[in-house]
C-alpha cells in the first residue's frame, strides 16, 4: 500500500498537524519506505487468530470507592498557556473554521 501526496495531507488533517509542502513530500517518501517494511505482516494468514490488546489479561480491578483529593484548580491551570477567570482560554468555537 503506497501513500499518495493527497493521502498524506488527509492523514495530517486527521492528526491535526499543519505540514509544509516540504514536510508533506519528505513524509510521503519516508512513510512509504517504512510501510514497505511493515507490509511484510500482510503475508501472514491470521484469519483464525484472535487479536491481543494487552499481553497480561487483567480483569477490571476497582479501587475502593472513597473520596480523595484530585488536582486543585490552581495545579490544573498551572501549565495552561492562556487562562482567564480560573478557566482554560480557547478560541471561539462557533462560527469557526472546522471544515466538517
Amino acid at each position: 500500500m503506497a501513500l499518495s501526496e493527497s493521502e498524506v495531507r488527509h492523514v495530517a488533517m486527521l492528526a491535526r498537524l499543519a505540514l509544509s509542502e516540504t514536510q508533506v513530500e519528505t513524509l510521503r517518501v519516508e512513510l512509504n519506505s517504512i510501510l514497505g517494511h511493515i507490509d511484510t505482516i500482510q503475508q501472514l494468514d491470521l484469519a483464525d487468530v484472535p487479536p491481543t490488546a494487552h499481553a497480561i489479561p487483567v480483569v477490571n480491578e476497582t479501587r475502593p470507592d472513597v473520596p480523595r483529593p484530585g488536582l486543585s484548580r490552581e495545579a490544573a491551570l498551572l501549565n495552561a498557556p492562556e487562562k482567564e477567570a480560573g478557566a482554560f482560554l480557547i478560541p471561539q468555537m462557533t462560527g469557526g473554521g472546522d471544515e466538517s
Partner: peptide
C-alpha cells in the same frame, strides 16, 4: 490548550 506550546495568533481552534 491545557498545557504545552501554543501559537499566538490562531484564527480558530483547528488552526
Amino acid at each position: 490548550i491545557r498545557y504545552g506550546h501554543r501559537v499566538k495568533d490562531a484564527e480558530d481552534v483547528i488552526d
